[in-house]
Design a protein around this nucleic acid. Structure first.
Lengths: 200, 200
DNA sequence: GTCTATATTGCGATAGAC
DNA sequence: GTCTATCGCAATATAGAC
């Protein structure tokens, strides 16, 4: 029953910050949820904001692994898109609250945005955008494709789904395989649509 | 120079709440930005949360008009999707902060979510989902299409773009026509992709 | 490392003068 | 309708005992 107080704080803070955001949670609330004295937040993390940064760093580490693994692989542009999509699902399984934090930071940036989140987003955006650019240049995709727009679209398809999952969980029938099914259909539609595009 | 204090509060609150969310703004901050005494927030709106609701009601009124107009029209499923996409752009032009509020509510729901936002989202989701369901049944789209997933994907494509516009405005070259261009490409890709889908 | 106690600041709301 | 003044409370952070 005697977990490390630091770890207990990180675990409780992950849930609370994900649910309510940085400003929406008090240190009393955090300490109570972690069964720990509130003074320990300053002791271990230098304050509430330090704890928040600590949570984000922990959450981003599995995502960083996938980004590092990207560099090792030589894949065709469509394969790179598929790899990105599967990585998002995989990261979300490992860190179910990561997307929530990213969206909180996009909607209401804290100082953690510039410190941690922005770097991650730029890396990811660059990767996806490059896959679309290469794919258009190499004939996989329509030559008129704007790779920046395409990257934003695909990111929207992936991220929005996980953002609203707390809501859709009540609507969509109970099915543990929703994530994979959704992503498979969405990516197939997008890759199919990108192949031959008819501008009006 | 003598605008109505109520209107000045609504205008200032729209900007501040959009930027920082309900909990991120204090009544003193709101009053100062509006050049109005802070006691007037309680006088006109019964408190900070009442002001927040007032802002949301004002922002949602143009969106509601488009939803009402939907009912009048008889369009094919692909046309309905196009209509939805154009409506999103149009609403965003009229109420540039609406999407920000929607995303704030999705990420960190306040009591305004159940009161205002949820109804709007459900109406919109139902409309888009039905368009995909009809389109699949009538042979416009692939018969295997899951209309719920498709609706979420399309909503993600549209909403995510407007959510991150504050960031992309710095990256994408200055071009006032980005919104239309983005939406045109994104919807064309999606409609093209949905037409003939190849499951692996 | 963990606790209590407290300093300090800022919050939302309102009573009451004008 | 607008103002000042202030109440009551909750916030974060920290000093110091153990």
């Amino acid at each position: 029953m005697e977990k490390d107080s630091r770890a207990k704080l990180l675990a409780a803070a992950t849930l609370l910050f994900a649910e309510k955001g940085l400003v929406g949670v008090s240190i009393r609330e955090l300490a109570e949820a972690a069964n720990v004295n509130s003074a320990l937040i300053s002791y271990y993390f230098g304050g509430k904001e330090g704890l928040y940064i600590g949570v984000l760093e922990e959450l981003f580490s599995p995502a960083a692994k996938f980004l590092d693994a990207f560099a090792e692989l030589t894949l065709t542009p469509p394969e790179r898109i598929q790899y990105y999509a599967k990585a998002v699902v995989s990261v979300h399984k490992k860190s179910p609250y990561l997307m929530k934090f990213v969206h909180n930071e996009l909607a209401n940036p804290t100082l953690a945005f510039a410190v941690i989140v922005e770097k991650y987003i730029v890396r990811l955006y660059t990767f996806v955008r490059q896959a679309f650019a290469d794919g258009a240049a190499e004939g996989y995709f329509n030559a008129d494709l704007d790779p920046s727009y395409a990257a934003i679209s695909l990111a929207g398809i992936m991220n929005f789904y996980f953002l609203i999952r707390p809501i859709t969980d009540h609507i969509l029938a109970a099915d543990a395989q929703h994530d994979e099914k959704y992503v498979r259909q969405a990516v197939n539609i997008y890759l199919n649509g990108v192949r031959r595009i008819n501008y009006e």
